[in-house]
């Protein structure tokens, strides 16, 4: 006889599924919107527009899962996440401001510094903030 899953197990499974779906839809959308592939397929602009929005719903579900996960945490874990945010948010502003100014000063190649390249720094800053915050309490 199998015992029913506990609430934390159910939450962890749901969070994992949502994360996997988001990552897969993002990777799939990026691959589909690849410049060379689009040259071959010659799809209408509105189709490309709709495909580009495919990861939005999974990403929104992922964010909701993160927010719910943080709400379920105890006070120390919530504090650690808050401190990570306090670290990451100003860094994100600094990055975007600097890139904005550099864009005025020099020609930043869009292949290296477009939105799709820059957004990944934001979760990385957050992860860095988490690592720093945990060092204080371990």
């Amino acid at each position: 006889m199998t015992t029913p899953d506990s609430a934390p197990q159910r939450h962890a499974r749901y969070d994992l599924v949502v994360t996997i779906v988001w990552v897969l839809t993002f990777i799939g959308t990026r691959a589909f919107l690849d410049h060379d592939l689009q040259q071959r397929l010659q799809l209408a602009g509105w189709i490309r527009f709709l495909v580009a929005l495919v990861p939005v719903l999974p990403a929104a579900l992922f964010l909701r899962a993160v927010i719910r996960g943080i709400a379920r945490m105890d006070e120390l874990h919530r504090r650690v996440h808050l401190e990570a945010l306090v670290f990451a948010y100003p860094l994100a502003i600094l990055l975007l401001m600097t890139l904005g100014l550099l864009q005025l000063a020099v020609d930043l190649p869009v292949e290296d510094w477009s939105y799709r390249h820059v957004w990944i720094y934001l979760p990385l800053f957050y992860l860095g903030g988490l690592a720093l915050a945990w060092r204080r309490y371990r």
């Binding site: 105890d74 874990h77 504090r79 204080r136 309490y137």
Partner: peptide, 17 residues
């Protein structure tokens, strides 16, 4: 009803509950 890390952080006086 907290995590073990929280108990440890309170005990080691790294975190004020």
């Amino acid at each position: 009803d907290v995590s073990r890390q929280t108990v440890n952080a309170v005990e080691t006086e790294k975190y004020e509950p």
